[in-house]
Simulated assay, not measured.
Amino acid sequence: MFPKKIAVLISFLLISAVSNSQTQNLNKTFLYQGRIDKLQNDQVILIGTASSVSFNFTGNECSISLQSVEDHHNYVQLVLDGKYIGKIRIEKGAVQSFPIKVASNQKEHRLEIYKNTEAQSGNVLFAGTTAKLTSISFKKKKKIEFIGDSITCGAASDPSDVPCDKGEYMDHHNGYYAYGPTLSREIGVDYLMSCVSGIGMYRNWNDEHKDEAIMPDVYPNLYMTKDTSKPKYDFVFQPDIISIALGTNDFSGGDGKKERLPFNAEKYVSNYIDFVKMLYKHNPKVQIVITNSPMVGGERGVVFEDCLNKVKKAFANDKAHKPIQIFKFKPMKPNGCTGHPDVADHKVLAEEYGPFLKKLLNEK
């Protein structure tokens, strides 16, 4: 579940002026969501899965300027007037212009641009639009943050444009239809995606935390890397619920070639507890939900659930925060690429998990 190393940001990128990670209404013409880095002149770096920029405009057409800020291509997904209209492939190189044509007779239109891929697949620059902009506002909603690995990211879920045995890792992502964004739209909440393919709580898919960073290492950084030259995550997005789905890679046997130690339950639980404490420090009122994995079953699944129960028990006497909740996904035979859930599978996961989260939100 771990992609090859992705190139870092190209050095000629505009220097970041303000970093941000939540919905903004300070700018009346653009609405930003997710892990993003706001630059000068209304330009923005889309970093995390399903991070987005939206705007309202008049007229029947406009163009948007995008750049894959990497040495490879990348993708965004578009929603026009509430309707998903597909993906755009952004080739590597200079800023490119993409035409947007409107078919409806509405006087005003809304375009939403979502980053299709995860942070580790590189970043996308939104460099502006020719649209005749009108003001934009947002309705205050409850918020959920989804922390996880490739499953949460929607990685390897969509071979509709490029078959599973062709192309590169980012060609098969579909962040918009990952279970988190899908269920969030269904229950009417805002969401933040903090996920990295192949990552774990104490070790990764094919690394014993020797050469690669684990989630507790990268989470506090806006770009979800260990690059100290990049901004820190600001924790301004204060979710009502944080969903943590980490363990699939900790339990993984790796590629079968590189040395893999037996699963260390004590280390997994210890790291998990410390991670939750860090989240509480920045989000004191949050409800935390920890989940198992639909990909981990049998004896490993039993050990997994035991570990989650130990994490929950560690906070049993914590009166300062809401009691930790555990959600158990049903076992799933995935239909996506390289053993991952596909878009249809993510819909199933969203239908399982959505009602549980909605009930928790209604109890707040």
Rank of each mutant, 00 (worst) to 15 (best):
P3C: 10
P3A: 10
L9R: 13
I10M: 13
I10V: 11
S11R: 12
I15P: 10
S16A: 12
S19H: 12
N20W: 15
N20H: 12
Q22L: 13
Q22P: 07
T23F: 15
L26Q: 13
F30V: 08
F30H: 11
F30Q: 02
G34T: 01
L39W: 05
D42R: 15
V44W: 04
V44P: 01
G48Q: 05
S51D: 06
S51H: 03
S52Q: 14
T58Q: 07
E61Y: 11
C62F: 10
S65C: 09
Q67A: 00
D71V: 09
D71F: 09
G82W: 14
Y84Q: 05
Y84S: 04
I85T: 11
K87D: 12
E91N: 15
V95F: 08
Q96K: 09
S97D: 14
F98D: 01
F98L: 00
F98R: 00
P99H: 00
I100K: 01
V102E: 06
S104R: 01
R110K: 15
N116L: 08
A119D: 00
S121M: 14
G122R: 01
G122D: 03
L125E: 07
A127K: 08
T134N: 12
S135Y: 13
S137Y: 11
K139W: 11
K143Y: 07
E145F: 04
D149I: 08
S157Y: 04
P163A: 01
P163K: 05
C164P: 00
G167P: 03
E168C: 10
H173I: 09
N174G: 04
N174H: 03
P181G: 07
P181C: 06
T182K: 05
L183Y: 14
R185E: 09
V189M: 05
L192K: 06
M193A: 02
C195Q: 02
S197R: 01
S197C: 05
G200K: 00
W205Q: 11
D211Y: 14
M215S: 02
M215R: 06
D217T: 07
V218S: 06
Y219L: 14
Y219I: 09
P220L: 00
L222C: 03
Y223Q: 08
M224S: 07
K226G: 05
D227T: 06
K232L: 15
F237N: 03
D240C: 06
A245M: 14
T248V: 02
P262S: 03
F263P: 05
N264G: 02
K267T: 07
V269R: 00
K277H: 13
M278L: 14
L279A: 06
Y280L: 05
H282D: 08
N283W: 12
K285Q: 14
I290N: 00
S293E: 07
P294H: 02
G297R: 15
R300T: 12
V303T: 13
F304V: 11
D306S: 12
K312E: 05
A314F: 10
F315N: 02
A316T: 10
D318C: 03
K319H: 14
P323E: 04
I326L: 10
K328A: 10
K328M: 09
P334H: 04
N335G: 11
G336S: 04
H340W: 02
D342Y: 00
H346M: 06
L349A: 10
A350D: 04
P355C: 02
F356W: 07
F356D: 01
L357H: 07
K358H: 14
L361Q: 03
K364Q: 15
